[in-house]
Computed example of a mutant assay.
Amino acid sequence: MTLYPMTAKGADLLREELKYLKSVKRPQIVKSIAEAREHGDLKENAEYHAAREQQSFCEGRLQDIEGKLSNIQIIDVTKMTNNGKVIFGTTVTIINLKTDEEITYQIVGQDEADIKNNLISVGSPIARGLIGKSLDDIVNIQTPKGTVEFEIIAVEYI
Protein backbone atom coordinates (compact mmCIF):
# COMPACT_ATOMS: atom_id res chain seq x y z
CA MET A 1 0.00 0.00 0.00
CA THR A 2 1.41 3.36 -1.04
CA LEU A 3 0.86 6.26 1.33
CA TYR A 4 0.41 9.67 -0.26
CA PRO A 5 2.03 12.48 1.73
CA MET A 6 -0.28 15.47 1.98
CA THR A 7 -0.59 18.64 3.99
CA ALA A 8 -3.61 19.06 6.26
CA LYS A 9 -4.87 21.83 3.95
CA GLY A 10 -4.55 19.57 0.91
CA ALA A 11 -6.52 16.80 2.63
CA ASP A 12 -9.25 19.30 3.56
CA LEU A 13 -9.49 20.47 -0.05
CA LEU A 14 -9.85 16.87 -1.27
CA ARG A 15 -12.58 16.22 1.31
CA GLU A 16 -14.42 19.37 0.16
CA GLU A 17 -14.23 18.27 -3.48
CA LEU A 18 -15.53 14.82 -2.51
CA LYS A 19 -18.47 16.35 -0.64
CA TYR A 20 -19.27 18.65 -3.60
CA LEU A 21 -19.14 15.80 -6.11
CA LYS A 22 -21.42 13.61 -3.98
CA SER A 23 -23.93 16.21 -2.84
CA VAL A 24 -24.08 18.62 -5.80
CA LYS A 25 -22.48 17.33 -9.00
CA ARG A 26 -23.73 13.74 -8.92
CA PRO A 27 -27.41 14.74 -8.37
CA GLN A 28 -27.12 17.32 -11.20
CA ILE A 29 -25.84 14.65 -13.57
CA VAL A 30 -28.59 12.19 -12.60
CA LYS A 31 -31.15 14.92 -13.27
CA SER A 32 -29.56 15.71 -16.66
CA ILE A 33 -29.66 12.03 -17.65
CA ALA A 34 -33.34 11.77 -16.66
CA GLU A 35 -34.22 14.89 -18.65
CA ALA A 36 -32.29 13.67 -21.70
CA ARG A 37 -34.07 10.28 -21.55
CA GLU A 38 -37.41 12.07 -21.82
CA HIS A 39 -36.38 13.35 -25.25
CA GLY A 40 -36.77 9.88 -26.70
CA ASP A 41 -34.37 7.93 -28.93
CA LEU A 42 -31.13 7.53 -26.96
CA LYS A 43 -28.99 6.54 -29.98
CA GLU A 44 -28.96 10.04 -31.42
CA ASN A 45 -29.47 11.96 -28.20
CA ALA A 46 -26.35 14.12 -27.75
CA GLU A 47 -27.52 15.49 -24.38
CA TYR A 48 -27.92 11.96 -23.02
CA HIS A 49 -24.46 10.89 -24.22
CA ALA A 50 -22.86 14.08 -22.84
CA ALA A 51 -24.53 13.54 -19.45
CA ARG A 52 -23.39 9.89 -19.37
CA GLU A 53 -19.85 11.00 -20.18
CA GLN A 54 -20.01 13.54 -17.34
CA GLN A 55 -21.29 10.81 -15.05
CA SER A 56 -18.39 8.55 -15.98
CA PHE A 57 -15.86 11.32 -15.33
CA CYS A 58 -17.50 12.23 -12.00
CA GLU A 59 -17.58 8.62 -10.76
CA GLY A 60 -13.93 8.16 -11.77
CA ARG A 61 -12.92 11.28 -9.87
CA LEU A 62 -14.93 10.13 -6.82
CA GLN A 63 -13.10 6.79 -6.81
CA ASP A 64 -9.75 8.56 -7.25
CA ILE A 65 -10.37 10.92 -4.32
CA GLU A 66 -11.71 8.17 -2.04
CA GLY A 67 -8.68 6.01 -2.86
CA LYS A 68 -6.26 8.82 -2.08
CA LEU A 69 -8.05 9.81 1.13
CA SER A 70 -7.88 6.21 2.34
CA ASN A 71 -4.11 6.16 1.75
CA ILE A 72 -2.96 9.63 2.78
CA GLN A 73 -0.37 10.44 5.37
CA ILE A 74 -1.11 13.92 6.67
CA ILE A 75 2.05 15.79 7.57
CA ASP A 76 1.43 18.96 9.56
CA VAL A 77 4.69 20.90 9.92
CA THR A 78 3.01 23.53 12.10
CA LYS A 79 3.09 20.98 14.93
CA MET A 80 6.83 20.33 14.50
CA THR A 81 9.81 22.19 15.90
CA ASN A 82 11.51 24.27 13.22
CA ASN A 83 15.13 23.17 13.19
CA GLY A 84 15.88 24.91 9.89
CA LYS A 85 15.75 21.66 7.93
CA VAL A 86 13.77 21.45 4.67
CA ILE A 87 11.17 18.66 4.89
CA PHE A 88 7.81 17.90 3.30
CA GLY A 89 5.34 20.71 4.01
CA THR A 90 7.90 23.41 4.75
CA THR A 91 7.86 26.79 3.07
CA VAL A 92 11.31 27.53 1.69
CA THR A 93 12.70 30.81 0.38
CA ILE A 94 15.66 30.49 -1.94
CA ILE A 95 17.76 33.00 -3.81
CA ASN A 96 19.35 32.38 -7.20
CA LEU A 97 23.00 33.23 -6.58
CA LYS A 98 23.55 34.25 -10.21
CA THR A 99 20.52 36.54 -10.69
CA ASP A 100 19.69 37.46 -7.04
CA GLU A 101 16.10 36.42 -7.80
CA GLU A 102 14.28 35.36 -4.65
CA ILE A 103 11.41 32.88 -4.67
CA THR A 104 9.37 31.10 -2.01
CA TYR A 105 7.90 27.61 -2.43
CA GLN A 106 5.91 25.29 -0.22
CA ILE A 107 6.72 21.62 -0.73
CA VAL A 108 3.44 19.70 -0.96
CA GLY A 109 1.97 16.42 -2.18
CA GLN A 110 1.56 15.68 -5.86
CA ASP A 111 -2.20 16.43 -5.84
CA GLU A 112 -1.68 19.79 -4.14
CA ALA A 113 1.02 21.11 -6.46
CA ASP A 114 0.15 24.42 -8.13
CA ILE A 115 3.14 26.31 -9.50
CA LYS A 116 1.07 29.50 -9.97
CA ASN A 117 0.66 29.58 -6.18
CA ASN A 118 4.27 28.45 -5.53
CA LEU A 119 3.15 25.02 -4.32
CA ILE A 120 5.64 22.48 -5.68
CA SER A 121 5.34 18.71 -5.65
CA VAL A 122 7.64 16.79 -3.34
CA GLY A 123 8.73 14.85 -6.45
CA SER A 124 9.72 17.93 -8.47
CA PRO A 125 13.42 18.53 -9.22
CA ILE A 126 13.47 21.69 -7.08
CA ALA A 127 11.86 19.97 -4.07
CA ARG A 128 14.12 16.93 -4.40
CA GLY A 129 17.11 19.26 -4.43
CA LEU A 130 15.94 21.09 -1.30
CA ILE A 131 14.66 18.26 0.93
CA GLY A 132 17.14 17.37 3.63
CA LYS A 133 19.06 20.63 3.26
CA SER A 134 19.09 23.36 5.90
CA LEU A 135 18.88 27.11 6.28
CA ASP A 136 21.92 28.89 4.71
CA ASP A 137 22.90 25.82 2.64
CA ILE A 138 23.96 26.31 -0.97
CA VAL A 139 22.23 23.84 -3.28
CA ASN A 140 22.71 23.03 -6.95
CA ILE A 141 19.44 22.23 -8.67
CA GLN A 142 19.16 20.80 -12.16
CA THR A 143 16.74 22.91 -14.22
CA PRO A 144 15.84 22.82 -17.92
CA LYS A 145 18.38 25.63 -18.39
CA GLY A 146 21.13 23.67 -16.63
CA THR A 147 22.37 23.53 -13.06
CA VAL A 148 21.46 26.58 -10.98
CA GLU A 149 23.00 27.48 -7.62
CA PHE A 150 20.61 28.61 -4.89
CA GLU A 151 21.01 29.60 -1.26
CA ILE A 152 18.30 28.68 1.24
CA ILE A 153 17.53 31.93 3.03
CA ALA A 154 14.39 30.94 4.98
CA VAL A 155 12.75 27.71 6.13
CA GLU A 156 9.31 28.11 7.68
CA TYR A 157 7.09 25.51 9.30
CA ILE A 158 3.80 27.31 8.64
Rank of each mutant, 00 (worst) to 15 (best):
M80H: 06
A51I: 01
I95D: 00
I126P: 00
R61G: 09
S121N: 08
G129Q: 06
I94T: 02
T90F: 04
F150T: 08
V139K: 05
V122H: 05
G123E: 13
I95L: 05
E53I: 05
I29R: 04
D136G: 00
R26N: 13
G60Q: 06
E38N: 14
A8P: 10
V122T: 07
N82A: 04
D136Q: 10
D137F: 03
N71C: 02
C58G: 04
M6Y: 10
N96E: 08
E47L: 15
E59N: 13
L14W: 02
G123L: 09
K31S: 14
K79P: 02
K31E: 15
I103M: 08
Y20Q: 14
D12C: 06
G40C: 06
V92R: 07
G123H: 10
E101T: 10
N117S: 08
N117I: 00
L3N: 14
H39K: 15
L130G: 02
G10L: 05
V77E: 01
Q54C: 00
I87Y: 03
K79N: 09
L135P: 04
K85T: 11
Q73D: 09
L13F: 12
I75N: 07
L97G: 05
I126Q: 07
A34V: 12
L42V: 02
G67T: 08
G67M: 04
N83H: 13
S23Y: 03
K43A: 12
G123D: 14
D137Y: 02
Y48W: 09
M6W: 06
I126F: 09
S70M: 08
I103F: 01
V122R: 00
R37F: 11
G67P: 03
T78R: 15
F88Q: 02
L14R: 01
L97Q: 14
E112C: 06
L18N: 10
A11Y: 12
L18I: 12
K79Q: 13
Y20R: 15
N82G: 05
F150Q: 10
I158T: 11
K22R: 15
F150C: 10
I75V: 12
T2M: 12
F57Q: 13
I141S: 01
A34I: 14
L119R: 12
T91E: 14
E44T: 13
I153F: 00
N83E: 14
I138A: 02
Q106F: 02
N83W: 09
N45V: 04
I72G: 07
A46T: 12
Y20I: 14
K68V: 14
R128A: 05
G146E: 04
S121A: 05
L13Y: 10
K79V: 07
